[in-house]
Write a protein that binds this DNA or RNA. Structure first.
Length: 468
RNA sequence: GGCCCGUUCGUCUAUCGGUUAGGACGCCAGGUUUUCAACCUGGAAAGACGAGUUCGAUUCUCGUACGGGCUACCA
């Protein structure tokens, strides 16, 4: 009988959730869901100076938008400080840790000298083997008493077996001189206590995994399965950092990308399932595995996200899409649609959704629905409404009164009018578009007529004809 | 500096010793067209470099170059 799979996402609340963190969260979520396990969320807020509650809230909001629901309570690492200290004292008692009285200044000076003379900057505390009786009455930190020889092997699901010589690993600090636990120690205790079975995180933690392994061993705890995924780089190949083009997840939401497309794109960034590019979240859950994760870092590409977004919008159910659109409007502080507008949007969704690569574009295409008479044509459209075309529209308008309001019939009438004036239909479509939408980017003229209905169509045409 | 990781078309990637190195986005050309799109057809485009192992290397090993990460009483 195998244990239930438990994964976790453990962001530090020092800023918004950026795209790399979002992908890490997604992978953990996907893996847990695939195995019917649990996906836990832990806020790593042990650094009080840099943590702030707004950041936690923003991360939670971003996760919710992405649809990455977590199981159980959100764990605050800071609140578990007592348990962390308890573990450290246990290690102290069993001889796996010791008190170190070296001051930060001493250590800094040591490193400075070591670097200057080209020697290893690895600090080896002189207090490692000092008997309790010989210890001074001074501030101290508690360090892990790590083995000095032998090696530590990380059996990583993505990176393979990675070997570290133990003499390259320092005696990491577990408890600071103010008696607060360090992150390095806290992760291990928390992951163990939360029964985390699989640690999927950025490969910037690969080195840490070795040192953390030493803590697991000191405590006699089972090791989790490691999977260190490569980082996402910026368009220029450099590390994606907050001051370097890394956008918060909420900004992608504001740019009008639907969460389903984000999940698809992010999953595809660094993970693959054969040649599959466009897939649903359900399929991603079905397919996700650690073996499909690549070893090299990848770059973020908006063009591909746009393309995927277009496909997701096109296949989303009309009602669901309208709901997402309204959420988008709310998230970007725009006024909600009226119920009449929603009604019309629903009616017109079929001709709007297969040509939009963001919610912004969707709204743009829907301008003919959202606007009200009299239509103010933009410059390009206004030019199309010259005397000649107005006279053609004048002939068309009365005919619309009695024609049956279906596409074929409308096309027939329009074609007839065009022929009577000895012009191609294209010549008529421009002015018609100008009268109905006031702009060039919009759906087919017949689709627009069908969506807004006979009365509104005729009214808009009369407006256009009447204008001087 | 030390330790660790990586390197297939511009980008995301497939390939798990034998392929004309495949797909997707983007790009270019043509077609369709009722604007913007969408759509259809075609095209250009890649194994960083050098050795070794092998009948045969993109694939395995080593070296070099380049890129990245870690090297805190940060996470």
């Amino acid at each position: 009988m195998s244990k239930t799979v438990v994964t976790r996402f453990a962001p530090s609340p020092t800023g918004y959730l950026h795209i790399g963190g979002a992908r890490t969260a997604l992978f953990n979520w996907l893996f847990a869901r695939h195995h019917g396990g649990e996906f836990r969320l832990r806020i790593e807020d042990t650094d009080r100076a840099r943590s702030n509650p707004e950041a936690s809230a923003a991360i939670l909001r971003a996760m919710q938008w992405l649809g990455l629901g977590h199981d159980g309570e959100v764990v605050s690492q800071f609140e578990r400080a007592d348990r962390h200290a308890e573990v450290v004292h246990q290690m102290l008692a069993t001889g796996h840790a010791y008190k170190c009285f070296s001051t930060q200044d001493e250590i800094a000076k040591f490193r400075e000298d070591a670097r200057a003379s080209g020697k290893s900057t690895l600090f080896q505390s002189p207090w490692r083997d000092t008997a309790a009786a010989d210890q001074p009455d001074a501030p101290f930190v508690i360090r892990l008493k790590a083995p000095r020889d032998g090696q530590t092997v990380i059996d990583d699901q993505v990176q393979g077996k990675v070997t570290f010589q133990n003499n390259q690993l320092d005696d990491m600090i577990c408890l600071r001189s103010d008696a607060t636990p360090t992150y390095m120690l806290a992760v291990v205790v928390d992951d163990h206590d939360m029964n985390v079975t699989h640690v999927i995180r950025g490969d910037d933690h690969l080195n840490n995994a070795a040192r953390q392994t030493l803590v697991y061993q000191a405590m006699g705890w089972d090791l989790p399965v490691w999977a260190h995924i490569p980082l996402i780089h910026g368009p220029d190949g450099k590390k994606l950092s907050k001051r370097h083009g890394a956008l918060g997840v909420e900004e992608y939401q504001a740019m009008g990308y639907p969460a389903s497309a984000m999940r698809n794109y992010l999953a595809r960034l660094g993970w693959s399932h054969g040649d599959d590019e466009f897939f649903s979240t359900k399929q991603a859950i079905e397919w996700f595995d650690l073996a499909g994760i690549g070893k090299s870092p990848s770059r973020f590409d908006f063009k591909k996200l746009d393309n995927l977004t277009g496909q997701h919008i096109a296949v989303t159910d009309d009602r669901e899409l309208l709901e997402q659109l309204c959420e988008f409007l709310a998230a970007t502080d725009r006024s909600d649609l009226t119920s009449e507008q929603k009604e019309l949007m629903l009616r017109g969704m079929y001709c709007l959704k297969d040509r939009a690569k963001s919610f912004h574009q969707l709204i743009d295409k829907a301008e003919f629905i959202l606007t009200t008479r009299p239509i103010q044509p933009d410059e390009k459209s206004a030019k199309l409404l010259d005397g000649v075309s107005r006279s053609i529209l004048k002939q068309l308008t009365p005919l619309l009164q009695d024609v049956s309001w279906i596409r074929n019939a409308l096309e027939e009438v329009a074609t007839k009018v065009a022929e009577a004036n000895d012009v191609k239909f294209g010549k008529l479509a421009g002015p018609l578009r100008a009268a109905l939408a006031g702009r060039t980017a919009c759906p087919s003229v017949f689709d627009m007529m069908l969506v807004i209905g006979r009365d509104e169509t005729i009214a808009r045409l009369n407006d256009a004809i009447g204008e001087a």
